[in-house]
Amino acid sequence: MNIVQVLVNSLITSAELGLIAIGLSMTFSILRFANFAHVESAVLGAYLVYLFNVTLGWNFALSILVSTLILGTVGLALHRFIFRRFANSGDITPMIASLGLAITIRHGIQAIWGPQHVVYDYEVLPGNKIFGAFITDPQIWILITAVSAMVGFHCLLQYTRIGTAMRATAANVDLAQACSIDTQKVILLVWFIGTGFAALGGILIGWDTQVDPYLGFNLVIPIFCVVLIGGVGSVYGAIIGSLIVGFAQNFGLAFNYAPLINLFGLLDLGDRFDLPAAYKPAITYMAVVLILLIRPTGIIRKEVS
């Protein structure tokens, strides 16, 4: 096993999943419903970069910035025109609405850009060899971007007044209102940042591989698993969850399970037992089940009072 390569692969997977999952967890923490349209926002962001970068020939970094900001604004519009109307409708109605919206976005993307995959305009080069592992320049940028976004968000949450307001609103909306916090502003900010993070995550995946209309369909289950593992509504939990899923998917496939199957020497059933790649998605579910068995509310317990 090339352990350094597996480690690099794990970090990249975690970075890509993490940004999208943070946004999902953030919106859940305040709005209290599972927003299935969130993952499709990631795909829409990725396609906007394609529009600006490839179709219109814009600079790549500028395309990423503008697309992220546009999607943040789209998040505001979604709240203003759709989800605000479900504020007092429980959690099922907005969840179903988000599912319908997700399907609409997916097919809308397909209607505009077609069913084929698209790639951004940059030259694919062999990775840089570091300690026996290959890592490409875009992958290095992906790690830098994801870590910067996460650290920046942490600073916003912990060291700013608006961050305090966000945490207070997430903990208890009524109490936050009683403390003169403008919770409507906080909700708008959460939509903006959450959807923008989703867009950024989608863009990074598109940068690393390619984009097609079904990208969201493939991401939705891993992203929800990340959120469940970390603790629904916890943004820090989403970061931990993405690391667990990223590492589980890559290391889970790389191990030779023979010692375990042979009960560490008690049996002799052969010296190799590789987990088939077909079980890769199942590794994620196994991680969810194991962690929820130990910690039913996820790794980061959320205070609800």
């Binding site: 692969n9 690393d208 591989t209 369909f217 790649a277």
Partner: peptide
Amino acid sequence: YQVGAKDFRAELTK
């Protein structure tokens, strides 16, 4: 491998 997946690095590494 899983058809339609977006990342095959784990499979290819192995």
